[in-house]
Design a protein around this nucleic acid. Structure first.
Lengths: 362, 362
DNA sequence: TTGTTGATTGAGACCGGTCTCTTTGATAAT
DNA sequence: ATTATCAAAGAGACCGGTCTCAATCAACAA
């Protein structure tokens, strides 16, 4: 890289000190708000600072103090309203405690997540909040923890990592959602998730490295089996990683044999796309197909019919994890806490009995 | 503040240098990737760094270099999908150029915006992207500019501030949207915005300090007047600052006299809430009331009927402004550019002729 | 053989704060 | 009057990098 920086000369403590006819140390004391200074000198320095339009260099400050006042956050996808709401919760809690937030996107890719963590550590954030995209490779998270910087986990727990964690009871709530469908009479219920695995085909839980999703699938399968559904695994659909992919998955699912009469979507972004495909195929909800999705997104309440959703306390999830982290930042010595927030289901109009014979109207 | 920092001792260049039996300068050269070093020494240092698990202190680095590799972004409300999509555009462009993004929310409040700008400058970001919440008080933006740090404006132009700016033709597109309503026969058309003013009553354009909204209202009023609508100002509704407030505004509007037969919403968050109120009052869209909103949000395409929207190129807006800023960061000396991105309208099903007599069915 | 050149490496200043340790001077105690 | 005490201000090291400049040394030319 060339010499591009014009090196803007900014006003420093020394400049102010000189202007106020005091030592650098004294000026620093009033400017930094520490130590003791007489009122007269304080006034002088303050005046000089104002006249020169002094702006403290946070970088220099946090280099010597060792703390930056910044919390690093790594989430899967900020565009997903689930995460933006959670981030909002984090930001609010952080601001209330005088911290700032620096945000990084992992795109649910482990290598990007690692890079982001490395970067944030490099920036010397005081602590990190991560939504781990994989439970397999968590060396970078161990590193954080080991470096003495507090780490807190959001939405996804890691059994092997004993740090503050805030999640919901994904298994339990998935069971409840599935039971609603089963009770309505469904036997062909599909579970659609963005998580992918080798071969894009679901075989067993061991393939699924995103803890929340694994829990959900586990709950889903348990209830299905209890209901006597044969090999419910065949209804688990992976790889709905983008709108286009979701569309592909949904299309395959809806036109293939053994077609589901009900769908449980793992997040609202997926559900939206599935809903579009359903509409496009001129299928009716819930007469032709029932739908439940995780996350009470905006749109789910204004469709016709409105969608039955799993209403995770997303904002509280973010707020809670931030509060846990901040508590740790302030030196709380208590052992790591694993908070599991209560979750409910909003039954709206998208679930009905299975249609006897579904005609493909597309 | 107490002595809380345990002052985690991290591995520094000196530590690595000592381990590799070279000088600090040499170790720094290989670790920092600058200057010339012989292959043998490079290998030694690299090995030592790996053994010690050296992590560069980004803070110290950017303190001496003067640049942090960070772009500061201040937006009105990250939860608004308009902004999260724009931020996504910014992030993508930033990452592509090797920059990182630090995000701050202003909540559309000028004092918070000022604090955020001050903070980001303190953190020595290389440049800033701001969505100015007011055109009245822009002293803090002038300061940025004056401090030599590049500034770029997103979505809202400031006539008095000659910096890189990316917007859409708000006035023109508002005219087109309004004309669609006028052409459908509407004469009572309401414009609803989150922007507020003293008295919460619209009187004239001089009250509106958010440039994009002012432009839109201007366009709206122009078309209304051209269509011979008497005092269209009375249909401009301010203060839809939150879902609750929007609800209040919508309720007042829909139950009062001179009730609108069509509504133009200034953003999708407002439109969603208005749509809910409409539903709640068992009014039909578009038979009883027509609706157009700015921003092609997710939900607008899945309602029944789908909503006619102004489709701003939001992602491109963010990407564009980031690219402009980065160009400046790299030393481009060209004069400030004001990009106005083309915008279209997606006509869907929420506009129809005005109903003759609207009955309040609620 | 000796001076020149060029490639490497080392020494140390510097960035802009914080913070420890000294010095200074005034007041209080002896 | 002398000394202990204490608050206020000054000096300078330090954080962990970057970067300038000087020193070293081998190869090469004269």
């Amino acid at each position: 890289m060339k010499r591009t920086a014009p090196k803007t000369p900014s006003i420093t403590v020394s400049d102010v000190a000189r202007a106020a006819n005091v030592s650098k140390a004294t000026a620093a004391r009033v400017l930094g708000g520490y130590g003791v200074v007489s009122d007269a000198i304080r006034a002088d320095v303050t005046a000089a600072a104002k006249a020169l339009d002094y702006r403290p260099n946070e970088l220099a400050r946090s280099m010597t103090t060792g703390r930056s006042g910044i919390i690093g956050v790594v989430v899967g996808d900020i565009e997903n309203p689930f995460f933006s709401l959670a981030v909002r919760g984090i930001s609010d809690a952080a601001r209330a405690a005088g911290f700032n937030v620096i945000l990084a996107n992992s795109g649910e890719r482990i290598d990007v997540e690692k890079a982001a963590v490395r970067l944030l550590i490099g920036k010397r954030v005081d602590g990190l909040i991560v939504t781990p995209s994989e439970s397999r490779d968590i060396s970078h998270l161990r590193d954080i923890h080991r470096s003495g910087r507090p780490l807190a986990l959001l939405d996804r727990a890691l059994p092997d990592l004993d740090v503050d964690t805030v999640t919901v009871d994904d298994r339990g709530i998935a069971m409840r959602a599935t039971r609603i469908l089963v009770d309505a009479g469904h036997r062909n219920i599909a579970y659609v998730t963005a998580v992918d695995a080798k071969g894009h085909e679901y075989r067993d839980l061991g393939q699924i490295y995103t803890s929340s999703v694994r829990e959900r699938i586990d709950g889903f399968l348990t209830v299905c089996r209890d209901a006597g559904i044969d090999r419910p695994e065949r209804f688990v659909r992976l790889g709905a990683t983008s709108p286009a992919e979701t569309r592909r998955v949904a299309d395959a699912m809806l036109s293939g044999p053994d077609r589901p009469t009900a769908i449980l979507a793992s997040d609202s972004v997926i559900a939206l796309e599935i809903f579009r495909v359903i509409r496009q195929r001129v299928l009716r909800v819930p007469e032709d197909i029932s739908l439940i999705t995780f996350h009470n997104a905006d749109w789910t309440s204004v469709t016709t019919p409105p969608i039955t959703v799993v209403d995770q306390p997303v904002y509280a999830l973010g707020k809670g994890v931030a509060e846990l982290l901040i508590r740790r930042l302030k030196g709380d010595p208590r052992p790591a806490e694993r908070l599991i927030l209560p979750t409910s289901i909003f039954e709206r109009g998208s679930v009905g009995p299975p249609s006897k014979a579904i005609v493909n109207r597309a």
